[in-house]
């Protein structure tokens, strides 16, 4: 007998399918989801009963499928072993609290620096013109350097948003694979909503346009 492609059809006497039927019947009687072990057993039984009919390529392909099944099974176990509750309730809040503390401390330090600069600025106005100019020049450079606090603050905000996305994705992945008995709260959206899609924040130096690039772009826009 040949199939529609002209190749010999894969037929087997009903008696050789017995082990498969028995496995399926056993699974039905238990009324429980088929576990990984039983699934592997069924696949092995199928491969065994078909071995006489398949070419070397087809057998190899089926073995690859079986190996793929095992790999998926192993991945599921690994994902199931992730302690999502810890990630959500301890790790992410810890990381975000630490980052918030960095922003607070750098802001406090920057304000202290700025206060001193303002004092120096006032002094610059009372000293000889030459010395005053030098003093003010130095103070200006400190003002410029202090803008780092704004940039680092924005970068840290981006990192916190990314952590929240990772948290949501891990929770979703674990739920998809049926782990932890549904004890995970899944956020409604898997990304942190932003008010304006154009808010990209500071770019890494390798990706960012500098002021001269922006001036050229503005000029080209008329």
């Amino acid at each position: 007998m040949r199939d529609r492609t002209g190749r010999p059809a894969l037929t087997k006497p009903a008696s050789t399918l017995g082990p498969i039927h028995e496995q399926l019947e056993r699974a039905r009687r238990h009324h429980a989801p088929v576990d990984r072990g039983m699934m592997a057993e069924v696949v092995r039984a199928v491969l065994t009963t078909m071995s006489g009919d398949l070419s070397a390529t087809e057998t190899s392909l089926l073995h690859e499928v079986e190996a793929l099944g095992r790999a998926i099974s192993a991945a599921k176990q690994e994902i199931a072993s992730l302690r999502v509750a810890d990630i959500k309730q301890r790790d992410i809040p810890f990381a975000t609290d630490e980052l918030d503390a960095i922003v607070r401390h750098t802001a406090d330090a920057t304000h202290a620096i700025l206060e001193s600069c303002e004092m120096l600025d006032a002094v610059a106005a009372t000293v000889a013109a030459d010395a005053g100019a030098k003093l003010q020049d130095a103070v200006t450079k400190i003002y410029e350097a202090c803008s780092f606090q704004d940039i680092t603050g924005q970068r840290i905000t981006k990192v916190v948003a990314t952590l929240k996305v990772i948290e949501a994705k891990v929770a979703r992945m674990v739920t998809t694979f049926g782990a932890h008995g549904g004890t995970i709260d899944i956020p409604a959206a898997d990304h942190v909503p932003i008010a304006d899609e154009l808010l990209n924040g500071p770019q890494l130096p390798s990706n960012a346009m500098d002021q001269s690039d922006i001036d050229k772009l503005l000029a080209s826009l008329g």
């Binding site: 940039i151 924005q154 808010l199 924040g201 500071p202 002021q211 922006i214 503005l218």
Partner: peptide, 22 residues
């Protein structure tokens, strides 16, 4: 700190007088 082309273009279209990147 928004220094992408799309940001500069959007600002220009909205009527910005000039644009300084942090």
């Amino acid at each position: 700190a928004e220094s992408k082309t799309e940001n500069v273009v959007a600002a220009k279209q909205a009527g910005v007088s000039n644009y300084i990147v942090k």
